[in-house]
Design a protein around this nucleic acid. Structure first.
Lengths: 222, 222
DNA sequence: GAACTATTTTGAACACGTTCAGAATTACGG
DNA sequence: CCGTAATTCTGAACGTGTTCAAAATAGTTC
């Protein structure tokens, strides 16, 4: 992520810095690993890291972007054999958790700043907009031909809502300290089932007023 | 907040530091105001601040504790003339927002670390446990004689859930940039109404399976 | 290859939150 | 009052993320 990767050697140095950083983040955590440590491990001076990354946070951001890109084919494969809304939703989230698993600590640094859209990190920021949109597109795709009728009025907003729901699960996972993250797994199981039935039920004609209230809420929060 | 407020002069110095800090936090924001600034404004050396507060964050924590204590009578007064669940819920939250209004920026520093229970700040931490419990007690109180029948199985968990809901509203408020925080006010109106009807509907015998799912979810998240 | 420009790298320096050994002040028993 | 101990306060120093002028290196043009 140099300003403009002019030479091949620069590209290599940049990757070396990223790699050293991630290794140290995994090994000792985001806060313990210092920029000096990272630079030293990469075999460069402290300042060099700042030629490639404008800040320590930016390294995490780069990791996040690369991870999301790598995840795309995995998601596609996981959805291959999932036809119902519930399984699709669950598998989509499960793939993400699995992919992030070795770097849970790094993700923790990313989600530390919560939902503040002002902070460059945070999945709601301007900096992560592109990732977010690619992500939401998957939730849009999940809804087509899934066997459950999606109410017309809810349809345009549902992908965003599901993405938000997914973010909640990921957040819970990052915090989860239970062995094997078993609580997250239970949550994923229960919550996807609930969401799926909720969507099914919401399509009932009786539920029109409920849908209208929900839509108002969504409108305000967006 | 000295270790033990031995003399009267010490108490005064401590308050001076707290006051200087809060003034600067309001004036320039938590990040801009430095400990050196705070100490200087209080007329003491930099290190003195650390005799009274173990960290910059601790100042915010102290503010939070004091603010919550001050709020108690205001809450009591506001609930005096609220009899329905919806109005009680709304008024309770409204009082909090009103009380925190002059220090929205300080609260932002508090909620910055999101829901990480590891961080001393964060409304979910061990450090804020006492506040949390006092807070939840209000939500328990709100439910008695409110005119809506609360399902037996839901009852013990409902205060915690409502507290969590309230935390969401406060979080939204803290990052809300709309003029006069009008979006938060709309959200408060809509969301309390929805929550109230949701509770009403959940009491229907038909809804027993739905309640059971919800309870399972609550159990996992707790 | 020499001269020159652009890129990459260096390491000292800055401001910040925080620590700490000790100085100043206060409290108190004689 | 004096002497001693506890309390309160000081300011230099540490480690951190970050900045930046300048050095080193690479690329380009003649």
């Amino acid at each position: 992520m140099p300003p403009t990767k002019a030479t091949a050697k620069a590209e290599e140095t940049g990757l070396k810095i990223l790699d050293s950083a991630l290794t140290l983040f995994r090994q000792e955590g985001f806060d313990i690993a210092t920029m000096r440590d990272i630079a030293e491990k990469a075999g460069v001076a402290t300042g060099a890291a700042y030629y490639y990354y404008p800040s320590k946070d930016a390294i995490v951001l780069d990791f996040y972007q690369r991870a999301c890109a790598e995840m795309q084919p995995k998601i596609e494969a996981a959805l291959e054999h999932a036809s119902t809304l519930e399984t699709r939703l669950r598998e989509l989230i499960r793939v993400k958790l699995a992919h992030f698993a070795p770097n849970r600590g790094v993700l923790r640094a990313l989600l530390r700043n919560g939902a503040d859209p002002k902070h460059p990190l945070s999945p709601f920021s301007r900096e992560t907009k592109e990732i977010r949109e690619v992500d939401i597109a998957w939730f849009r795709k999940i809804l087509v031909d899934c066997g459950t009728r999606i109410p017309r009025d809810l349809e345009p907003h549902l992908p965003g809502v599901l993405w938000f729901f997914q973010m909640g699960v990921i957040f819970f996972w990052v915090i989860d300290e239970s062995p094997n993250e078993s609580r997250t797994m239970r949550l994923l199981e229960l919550a996807t089932k609930s969401v799926a039935t909720l969507i099914k039920v919401s399509a009932l004609p009786l539920m029109r007023p409920v849908r209208k209230s929900a839509l108002q809420l969504i409108e305000v929060v967006k």
